[in-house]
């Protein structure tokens, strides 16, 4: 190998190493996440040791450390989903603001609409049963036949009675 080629290969190798070092340095220098970025995720997580307190507003020392952890994870490039997953693995699903839709937890989401629909159905059926057409069907038959301003008429009637 001639000398010039050897120098060229050394330069190329050095260039690759420098480029690699540059890339690593750039990756490690992820800008420090802002408080708002930390809060956005912390707000979706509940304090694992307090009752019903979102992590972004919890004043305990433990929560302050967890917020620092979120900041560190963000600076290391973790995604929101990964951070939430980490907290679930560490402290259980209670850290989520809603139970994940699996197993018994389905009941949280399914039961209320079922009960409400059943209630609505029962009410509708009962009302249909209660409703009897009035003897004078013309009074309710159509809007056209209803009094022009029933409320005002009623009020005036009452007032006349009172006089």
């Amino acid at each position: 190998m001639n000398r010039n080629l050897r120098i060229a290969l050394y330069v190329l190798a050095l260039g690759i190493v420098l480029a690699g070092l540059w890339a690593v340095t750039v990756h490690a220098q992820n800008p420090t996440p802002t408080d708002d970025e930390v809060n956005r995720i912390a707000h979706q997580l509940y304090c694992p040791v307090c009752e019903n307190t979102p992590l972004d507003v919890c004043p305990t020392e433990a929560c302050r450390q967890w917020r620092d952890l979120i900041r560190q994870q963000l600076s290391e490039g973790w995604t929101e989903a990964q951070i939430k997953q980490y907290f679930v693995q560490q402290y259980g699903v209670r850290v989520l603001s809603e139970p994940p839709a699996s197993g018994l937890n389905w009941l949280v989401y399914v039961l209320p609409p079922l009960i409400i629909l059943a209630g609505a159905f029962l009410l509708f059926r009962a009302m249909r049963g209660w409703i009897k057409p009035p003897a004078d069907s013309s009074a309710v038959g159509s809007g056209e036949e209803a009094p022009k301003d029933e409320y005002v008429e009623r009020l005036e009637e009452e007032l006349k009675k009172r006089k």
Binding site: V93, V95, S97
Partner: peptide
């Protein structure tokens, strides 16, 4: 299992 049913 302890779960939280929160504002959302």
């Amino acid at each position: 299992q302890t779960v939280t049913v929160g504002p959302p």
